[in-house]
Simulated assay, not measured.
Amino acid sequence: MTRPPDPSSASRRTRVFFALWPAPAIARRLHREGERAHATTGGRRMRRDTLHLTLAFIGDMPRERLEDLLACADKVDFAPFALVVDRIAAWRHNHIVWAGASVQPPELESLVSQLNAALADAGFPVERRKFSAHVTLLRNARGELPASDIDPPIEWSVRTFALIESDLAQDGAHYTVLKFWPAAGTTGH
């Protein structure tokens, strides 16, 4: 599923973002949480193969800038960490049901901070709002969903982050991992 950027496509545009990409077992657990929430709220469930935690959304950009993005990510030095996904809730303003961590590990905050600094230095847009680690499970949710615990919590061992390309289609977005970056002292995904 990982593929290198295509240098012959320099004149085209691409839509990309950096993310934590879950291992299959974690994606299955997140998908089951979305299924449970869907019974209460309705909406459109995210496909299991698209579940992720966005670190930095770049959006639409010229494909020839992919090398610049790769260079930004190469500057990030992060330690592996455990992310405990233990909460499920909804944002009413945008009808999103999400799963997240009640405590964000300092390693995650450092990863996001380093990535945003490198992106800003290279002239890429950077989110100014406080980072809120979450995985979108449902879109267009209609019912109420009070915040609750995920029991047992999902223990996500984070050892990589990735650059993802997003292709929008009628049935939703389709993602391709362009590259993984391993945490310090690890061998990767």
Rank of each mutant, 00 (worst) to 15 (best):
M1P: 07
M1A: 06
M1R: 06
R3L: 13
R3D: 11
R3S: 15
S8H: 11
S8Q: 10
S9V: 05
S9I: 04
S9K: 14
S9G: 07
S11H: 12
R12F: 08
T14I: 15
R15G: 00
R15H: 00
V16W: 05
A19G: 08
A19D: 10
A19N: 10
L20D: 11
P22N: 10
A23T: 12
A25K: 14
A27Q: 06
R29C: 08
E33V: 15
E33R: 15
G34S: 15
R36S: 10
H38I: 10
T40V: 13
T40K: 14
T40M: 14
G43E: 11
R44C: 11
R45V: 10
R45A: 08
R45Q: 10
M46H: 04
M46V: 12
M46C: 06
M46N: 09
R47K: 14
D49H: 12
T50W: 07
T54N: 05
T54Q: 05
A56C: 05
I58E: 01
G59Q: 02
G59D: 05
G59N: 03
L66V: 13
E67G: 12
D68L: 12
L69S: 02
C72F: 00
A73E: 04
A73Q: 04
K75R: 08
K75G: 01
D77M: 04
A82K: 07
L83E: 05
V84E: 08
A89N: 09
A90V: 03
A90N: 03
R92E: 14
H93M: 04
H93E: 03
H93G: 02
H95F: 03
H95L: 03
I96E: 03
V97C: 02
A99N: 08
V103Y: 05
Q104D: 11
P105T: 12
E107H: 14
E107M: 12
E109N: 09
S110N: 13
L111C: 07
L111D: 14
L111V: 07
S113G: 10
S113V: 06
S113Q: 13
Q114M: 05
Q114S: 06
A117Q: 06
D121C: 00
G123S: 04
G123D: 01
G123K: 04
P125W: 01
E127D: 07
R128D: 00
R128Q: 05
R129P: 00
F131T: 05
H134D: 01
H134L: 04
H134E: 06
H134F: 02
L137Q: 01
R139K: 14
R142D: 06
E144D: 13
E144R: 13
L145Y: 05
A147K: 09
I150L: 07
P152R: 06
I154T: 05
W156H: 00
W156T: 01
W156P: 00
S157G: 12
R159S: 15
R159M: 15
A162H: 15
L163D: 14
L163P: 10
I164S: 10
E165L: 09
S166A: 12
S166G: 09
S166H: 11
D167M: 09
L168T: 00
A169I: 03
G172M: 09
G172V: 11
A173T: 05
H174E: 13
H174F: 10
Y175A: 06
Y175I: 03
V177M: 04
V177R: 08
W181N: 04
A183V: 13
A183R: 11
A183C: 07
A184F: 08
T186R: 07
G188D: 08
H189S: 07
